[in-house]
Design a protein around this nucleic acid. Structure first.
Lengths: 214, 214
DNA sequence: CGACTTATTGACAATAGTCAACACTCGTGG
DNA sequence: CCACGAGTGTTGACTATTGTCAATAAGTCG
């Protein structure tokens, strides 16, 4: 988005919310009133199945906007939980729609935004449906690396904000599988693991593993 | 959508397109200009990976609107192929946006529409990431059943428009697995398979298998 | 410091994939 | 209208990948 649009959005922000680690920004079924832009920290969004199973649908950090899935039914369809102390600002959606009626560029950006979310999820569907465990993990790490880089952090020294179980949930794998794969990739010299710190040592090899998805 | 909005949309439709079975409505990278509403027949949309792998992202039939993922980059991110002789009508997207600026209800419906697509894809992510083969197939069949029913067709006698391989591609399974599962469910008396005709005999048991996802 | 959560690793099991043979279907052209 | 052939579907035997269970180690937080 260009700066003019961003300024308009800023005007919509009436209040910011602080979330302690583990706190929920919204839960399934909560009334949908606003989108949320992450200012500090990071969140996971979780999809819940009727039978209690749950799966992490995405990780979100500085600048990401979450809550898009709530528009369709006026209720949130997943829940957002802070992975660390986090601050978000609310963009009331009715005001956003009103603004979009007069500011064409904002309207189009909103549509692009929603559409991009669809594209991202299709990418995850491809990952879950046709890639093997090792490829999934490589894609995950490279994707994180990219997003860190874009935000000015190191692209090779990642500090994960989530547990092995959460990574597994996102990738459709069990936590033991994630742990084993990290150990194996370390043995092979592609990366170095130290708890939640992962140093990517051979980006080219990881990209090859990922099947050039990144 | 209410009838007033639908009439407005109708006014946008300048031409209809007929597709022979197997023909592409659009391919990856094609310029995005319009959404398409299916009038007759059905389509699959396919995501392509850089390394040639492909996966079916969705099946679409009468009344469905496809092409939403193209908005974000002005190019289509997946390809749409007719599964049978099919007719679609094009909704030029710039005109749709223009209309949405003045007709509030249409604007909101467009947003809901985009958001619903996000929700549907999250549902597929859950399916691919945390359900076993048998559950996935049950969800798939029940989902088809629902959509047929909503369109006035039989909810229990399904005529599949796709091959076992295509079903497998959508569900993240191999065609042999799909074939075996259908045979097994038939043995267990939950359904009856005859080529591409599937009769659902025990919806309750299928729902149980699906983990109450449907 | 100590309780609890998170992570690693091994042994084994289960699920789904691979390869291969064969049967069935459907549309086409003789 | 029938026969042929390509594409599609089924099934079996075997393999590979990932999951399960369990024991232990390492971190983390009050």
């Amino acid at each position: 988005m260009d700066t003019a649009d961003l300024n308009l959005l800023d005007a919509l922000v009436t209040h910011r919310t602080r979330l302690k680690k583990g706190a929920a920004l919204y839960r399934v079924g909560d009334p949908f009133t606003a989108l949320y832009a992450i200012r500090i920290g990071s969140c996971k969004t979780t999809i819940l199945a009727e039978d209690g199973r749950e799966q992490i649908a995405g990780y979100h950090m500085l600048g990401d906007i979450i809550g898009l899935d709530g528009i369709s039914s006026d209720r949130h369809g997943c829940e957002a939980i802070a992975l660390e102390d986090t601050e978000v600002c609310a963009l009331p959606f009715d005001q956003l729609e009103e603004l979009a009626r007069t500011v064409t560029s904002l309207q189009h950006n909103l549509h692009k935004f929603l559409s991009r979310e669809i594209g991202v999820e299709q990418h995850v569907m491809l990952l879950l449906g046709s890639m093997r465990a090792e490829e999934r993990l490589a894609v995950f790490l490279l994707n994180l690396s990219d997003r860190y880089r874009l935000r000015g952090y190191s692209a090779t020294e990642l500090v994960l904000r989530m547990t092995r179980e959460e990574i597994g949930s996102y990738l459709g794998l069990k936590l033991e599988t994630v742990s084993r794969l990290l150990s194996r990739l370390q043995e092979e010299g592609l990366l170095q693991v130290q708890g939640r710190t992962v140093k990517l040592l051979d980006l080219a090899a990881l990209r090859q593993l990922a099947g050039r998805h990144c």
